[in-house]
Amino acid sequence: TTVKLGDIKVTFDNPEKAKKYAQKLAKIYQLTVHVHGDTIHVK
């Protein structure tokens, strides 16, 4: 599962960890989390 934020891409083996990371980023940057299959976009 890949978390994308602009040019930053972080890949996790564990989808749950990816989701938590995405939510953490979203909170920090006051953005929202969008899940598209294996990719989680923070924008």
Results as ranks from 00 to 15, higher is better:
residue 29 Y to Q: 03
residue 43 K to A: 12
residue 37 G to I: 04
residue 10 V to M: 11
residue 43 K to C: 15
residue 41 H to M: 10
residue 17 K to C: 15
residue 19 K to S: 06
residue 8 I to Y: 15
residue 11 T to M: 12
residue 28 I to V: 07
residue 28 I to M: 13
residue 21 Y to D: 02
residue 39 T to P: 01
residue 42 V to E: 01
residue 12 F to I: 02
residue 28 I to Y: 13
residue 30 Q to I: 06
residue 24 K to F: 15
residue 5 L to N: 03
residue 36 H to Q: 13
residue 19 K to R: 12
residue 38 D to Q: 10
residue 40 I to G: 03
residue 28 I to F: 11
residue 1 T to R: 06
residue 22 A to K: 01
residue 38 D to V: 08
residue 8 I to S: 06
residue 41 H to V: 14
residue 5 L to T: 03
residue 31 L to Y: 04
residue 28 I to L: 13
residue 19 K to E: 08
residue 7 D to F: 15
residue 18 A to I: 03
residue 3 V to R: 03
residue 11 T to A: 07
residue 4 K to R: 12
residue 21 Y to K: 02
residue 32 T to K: 06
residue 24 K to Q: 10
residue 27 K to R: 11
residue 26 A to L: 05
residue 8 I to V: 10
residue 10 V to T: 04
residue 7 D to V: 14
residue 3 V to G: 02
residue 5 L to M: 12
residue 1 T to K: 05
residue 18 A to E: 01
residue 18 A to Q: 00
residue 30 Q to E: 10
residue 21 Y to C: 14
residue 4 K to V: 15
residue 21 Y to T: 03
residue 9 K to C: 15
residue 7 D to A: 14
residue 38 D to T: 11
residue 23 Q to R: 08
residue 23 Q to C: 15
residue 11 T to S: 10
residue 20 K to Q: 11
residue 12 F to V: 02
residue 32 T to L: 08
residue 1 T to C: 15
residue 4 K to A: 08
residue 7 D to E: 11
residue 12 F to A: 00
residue 2 T to E: 04
residue 18 A to W: 06
residue 12 F to H: 00
residue 21 Y to L: 07
residue 7 D to G: 13
residue 24 K to S: 07
residue 2 T to C: 13
residue 17 K to A: 14
residue 27 K to N: 09
residue 33 V to F: 06
residue 39 T to A: 05
residue 3 V to T: 02
residue 41 H to R: 05
residue 16 E to N: 07
residue 27 K to L: 10
residue 25 L to K: 01
residue 29 Y to W: 07
residue 36 H to M: 14
residue 16 E to A: 09
residue 16 E to Y: 07
residue 20 K to E: 13
residue 35 V to C: 12
residue 15 P to T: 06
residue 12 F to L: 02
residue 29 Y to G: 05
residue 21 Y to F: 13
residue 41 H to T: 13
residue 42 V to I: 11
residue 16 E to K: 09
residue 6 G to N: 06
residue 20 K to H: 09
residue 37 G to S: 04
